[in-house]
């Protein structure tokens, strides 16, 4: 991820005030929106889907026992579906963050540490 020119050594220290000052900057509000735009719907979706799965396991046993092919039933397919959705969301989040979030976060990080005059 070579998005910023590398600077040698650790970045200069920042003060509380420098950090807090960024909080109301429009660029920071944009950064926050970029993050929440993914994590809020994704969290709601995977929790709802997991809860649905647990509730089906508790209360819809006939449905879960429906055989689809061979000895494979709905319960097994939904369970494996939880694995797939977990892998998928983890992959999707990393991709989203790398494209839409990380470059902006690094930009702000550097603006705070090195000042705006790059």
């Amino acid at each position: 991820m070579a998005t910023t020119p590398t600077r040698d050594g650790p970045p200069p220290e920042v003060t509380e005030e420098q950090l807090a000052a960024m909080h109301d900057d429009p660029r920071f509000l944009d950064l926050k929106r970029r993050l929440f735009r993914f994590i809020v719907p994704a969290t709601v979706a995977f929790l709802a889907w997991y809860l649905l799965y647990v509730l089906l396991s508790a209360y819809a046993r006939d449905f879960m026992g429906t055989v689809l092919f061979g000895n494979v039933n709905v319960a097994l397919v939904l369970g494996l579906g939880q694995f797939l959705s977990t892998f998928g969301i983890a992959w999707g989040y990393s991709r989203y963050a790398a494209r839409n979030y990380d470059p902006k976060a690094i930009e702000l990080h550097d603006a705070i540490h090195y000042g705006e005059d790059r």
Partner: peptide, 22 residues
């Protein structure tokens, strides 16, 4: 609110966070 502002900026940008040891 001031500390919350600092916390959020740190959390989201990584500015001021702990560095790896040299």
């Amino acid at each position: 609110p001031d500390r919350f502002a600092t916390l959020q900026v740190r959390a989201l940008t990584g500015a001021g966070s702990e560095r790896a040891a040299e």
